[in-house]
Design a binder for these strands. Sequence first.
DNA 1: TTTATTAATTAGGTTAATCTAATTATATAT
DNA 2: ATATATAATTAGATTAACCTAATTAATAAA
Lengths: 225, 225
Amino acid sequence: MYADTIMKKTYSEENYLKAIYHIDQNGLKVSPKAIAAALDNNPASVIDMIKKLQEKLLISYDKVKGAKLTASGQASALDIIRKHRLWEVFLVEKLGYDWDEVHDIAEQLEHIQDDRLAAKLDAFLGNPSFDPHGDPIPAENGKMPVYANIRLSDLEVGNKGKVGSVRDTSTPFLKYLKQLQLGLGSSIEVLDKLEFDQSMIISINSGPAQTVSSKMTSNILLIPG
Amino acid sequence: MYADTIMKKTYSEENYLKAIYHIDQNGLKVSPKAIAAALDNNPASVIDMIKKLQEKLLISYDKVKGAKLTASGQASALDIIRKHRLWEVFLVEKLGYDWDEVHDIAEQLEHIQDDRLAAKLDAFLGNPSFDPHGDPIPAENGKMPVYANIRLSDLEVGNKGKVGSVRDTSTPFLKYLKQLQLGLGSSIEVLDKLEFDQSMIISINSGPAQTVSSKMTSNILLIPG
DNA sequence: TTTATTAATTAGGTTAATCTAATTATATAT
DNA sequence: ATATATAATTAGATTAACCTAATTAATAAA
């Protein structure tokens, strides 16, 4: 059997790959303890599975650096996350569940095995880019959609978002952002919006209220939620 | 814990209940051997599970009479079959699969656990009575809709019927039907019946005469007229 | 740097669901 | 009725995924 053959993964292996991906995305070290916490099981069990996933070339592992997904491990993890999020869209949009009720069902549905299922579901749902929680749905090739796609100027009063990108990259603008202590990843809450000139009163990273112009708000792209 | 408490069943237990139901429906004795054949496993494994299902009061078992579902065992079996058939409708009607491609996927989907899922899926699909193979979908209370129940093999020469369902939903059989251009709703006329092997000469949708075996005709159920 | 704490790992078990091989029971055929 | 074939059952292993308890390694504190 070839090393790059896509081997069928067990339900449990898939859950480990997903957990490893998420822990890594959070910028944490992927330790046996962290994985055990994520999967609500025992570090000793995790060690067993780490060995198995290493043999299958899905992860590498080093006591000090923790676990890292290989290219094929990452592809698998993204495939599962893709399916999870597509099913969440289905459950909310088509079956009428609330967004806070679908996680456990999607945890089961994500493991359904069929070569064409994700693509067909994706098409049926109209190729959504985000799940009901605002999390991006990886494409078939594993690419994540560009997430920042809501202008701050379009955000309603009382809503929040995280800065994903800026449309104006001129020096004066970026200097202004620096002065506001606003960078990629900053959380913004809209406290108020003034009708007469569309300027906003916002809080950056839960800091003090600040007034910003419509020119500013139309150049900030946010990750919703 | 009360005896009539609905206990969560494992994936495997659900498959046994379903197999027992189907074997019984076919009028056969539900023996360890028959169950093993249906599940493609070993009679010794079946004996173990028979004991377990007996303890859980889902079946009764007698060496001579075979296994019988108890009321709660039958309710469970019908619930799984209901989910299986609802998912088949979803896969064909909504995702665009062909009817001969959905069995294996529905085998997985039928085990998804959520109290409200079947009802929501049922409503979303418009409360269908039959799955894409023409098999009746049990209602929430376990009641089966009345359906086509005359076998093609029992039809007299010169009579006609419309295909209402097929009793064998295996991929090879469905592929054969596809090749014959025979689907649900197809009209069939019996042109002749050969005494020596019970094979028939039929016309599908007023098409050319074709010879089909008794094995084929005993697996086609017709709505008379 | 030695101690205390926490994390990683090993060793040995458990459970569910399977298996093979051997045995016992039932059914069939002469 | 006895031999033969087939089915049911028992006994004992195996595998995947988990566990607890003991040990070793690494990190943090005194």
